[in-house]
Amino acid sequence: MQYFLELSCSGLVRGSIYALIALGYTMVYGIIQLINFAHGEVYMIGAFIALIVSGVLTIYGFSGFSILILAALIAAVYAAAYGYTLEKIAYRPLRNAPRLSPLISAIGMSLFLQNYVLLAQTPDFLPFPSLIPDFDFMEPIAHIMGSAELVILVTSAITMIALTVLIKYTRIGKAMRATQQDMTMARLVGVNVDNVISMTFVIGSVLAAIGGVLVGSYIGQINFYIGFMAGVKAFTAAVLGGIGNIPGAALGALVLGLAESYAAGYVSSAYEDVFAFGVLVLILILRPAGLLGKAVKQKV
């Protein structure tokens, strides 16, 4: 039983990181039907910015938690700028092109950003300071769930609630929903669709950057390539939950994280990816639109 709890905990932690990244995929897909393959790289860049910022702040004598929050904020701002620019130079010019063109452009941006960081920083792994302090009250159950894991779970829960509120109750949220339903109609009633799309990229990038900072301080190392695998997994989670559907992405991410953790714990960690993608195949056979996705008839 304790073993099951331990595995569930590590699965939930992994799942909530996937969720933070998956939300960006699903929001962008929901609005412009584009799979933004460069999204994983935004997550990686967020982690790098946080590493640089925390290095600087440590020199200035800041400590633990304040560094984490400041680093996350600055990383989020930077990542937002990257997301915004990405959309502006790589996707907006191709808005009316055939759907494959922005997809290729996305893959190109992903490779570009990876190699940019590879050249500008280093191909080696870099140590990431453990910014999340050990809380005393977590010590009795540290072997099941540590402080870092608690912070990850709480942060991603708060972030997701904030996102839900933003989309349900604010003007920009309403505009986003309108654009998602029908871009032309939204434009006709006076929604600035270009701004809404930019906003979507910005929000997605902020979420990814938060994920990057959390992962960095949780596992203690980053390199230019971490975005690739995380991006693939998060994309899988988004598809699992029904791509374009926001609660679906979160649910899909948690299912994926738990499936990987149970597979590693009860079968073999050598095959955790096999199980993760096995779950994906199974769900897509049973529910082709994903867990929460609605089957949409193709407009002809």
Partner: peptide
């Protein structure tokens, strides 16, 4: 006796398994 996937996000499940 178990293999892990290089580049996986974390190894906490394997660590728990070692303990178990």
């Amino acid at each position: 006796f178990e293999g892990v996937t290089p580049g996986a996000m974390d190894y906490s499940a394997v660590v728990q398994k070692i303990r178990k």
